[in-house]
Simulated scan of single mutants.
Amino acid sequence: MADSRPAGAPTVLRVVLGKRLQHLRERAGLSYEEAGRALDVTHATVRRMEKAEVGLKIPYVEKLLHVYGVLDAAEVEGFLCLTREANRPGWWHRFRDVLPEWFSAFVSLEGEANLIRAYEPHYVPGLLQTEEYARAVLRAGMPHARDAEIERAVTVRRERQGLLAKDGAPLLWVVMDETVLRRPIGGPDVTRAQVDRLIEATDMPNVRLQLMPFAAGPHPAMYGPFHIFRFPLQELPDIAYAENLVGASYFDQRDDVSSFLEALDRMCAQAAPAHTTKAILGGIRKEI
């Protein structure tokens, strides 16, 4: 993958169904060209369906299932029901005025993962930010945005945070540089409230927070922040996400993701243990 997502970022379910269609086609021994002829479309259209680069049209999916030898009526209807669900916009679609398409894919991955690991050298991760902290960060990153746009973006961040409290919430495992807590953002009151929020988060059973102190010296991920998502769905590999000033890249090739995983594993060993984080935060809180 290793490229910026195209417009119309897919939901995770659409990615899964694309991979299932690929498996069925390969099991049937058909090429892209042969599948395309069955639909009277180009082979590129079939390839894009499998890669979730286009929506899944119900008539196309139904025809392909027949061509691929899926004849059981209940199995076909179940696949078509999932297809209809996959084509529905995610909750974040109503915020598309302030949410870039390249980040819509991130929100979809975040919502379906059962493990989210991250390294953050600049800011508290969005899932753990207070509203005032988020507002200050967004204002710095969107200097030309109107107040209404900033508030819409804060709302998106708040809705994303509901993920950690839902049934079956993912494990969030974050390594943060000490720099994150030493950089003044929004003033002392905002910073203190944010540290309090992190202290509360250390008591959550599905949050593991580690701090990388200055004294630890250099580490394998000093080039920038990234996330790694793991899913309960067998069709989805681990996916790594790295953001830049104008977009993001998503990586799902094993060798690429392994590089991110190895760096993060080394950092977790180098950072302060998670059970000490609450005490460290308490000490920083007194200094603010």
Results as ranks from 00 to 15, higher is better:
F229M: 14
V195P: 02
M222K: 02
A136G: 04
A263E: 09
M212E: 04
V137T: 11
L209F: 08
E131Y: 03
P184G: 03
L211K: 04
A269N: 10
D256K: 05
V195W: 00
W173Q: 02
P213S: 08
D252W: 11
D196P: 10
R208L: 09
S259W: 04
E262K: 13
A221H: 02
A145F: 04
I199P: 06
F260Q: 00
A169M: 10
R183M: 09
G187S: 12
G247R: 09
L261F: 05
Q253Y: 07
P213G: 08
A271T: 01
A148W: 05
D147N: 06
E149R: 11
E159I: 10
P220F: 03
D167W: 07
L233S: 14
A145K: 02
A271C: 05
V190H: 06
F214G: 04
F260S: 00
Y241A: 00
H275M: 05
Q161I: 04
F231V: 09
V137A: 11
G187A: 05
H227M: 11
L172V: 07
E235A: 15
E178S: 06
A269W: 14
V207L: 10
Q253R: 14
A145Q: 07
T191E: 09
A221K: 03
R182P: 01
D256Y: 06
D196Y: 09
A272W: 02
M267D: 00
E235S: 12
M267I: 13
K278G: 13
D167R: 13
A271G: 09
V246K: 12
I239D: 01
D256R: 08
M212S: 09
V190I: 14
M176N: 08
R139W: 02
L209Y: 06
T155H: 14
E132G: 07
L233E: 15
I228P: 01
T276E: 12
A134Y: 01
I150M: 07
R139Q: 14
A148E: 15
G168T: 11
G224R: 07
D256S: 08
T277D: 12
L164G: 00
V174I: 11
F231E: 01
I185E: 00
L164I: 14
G224V: 06
T277M: 10
L181G: 06
A140Q: 11
M176S: 09
Y250D: 00
L211W: 05
E132M: 14
K278M: 06
R157K: 15
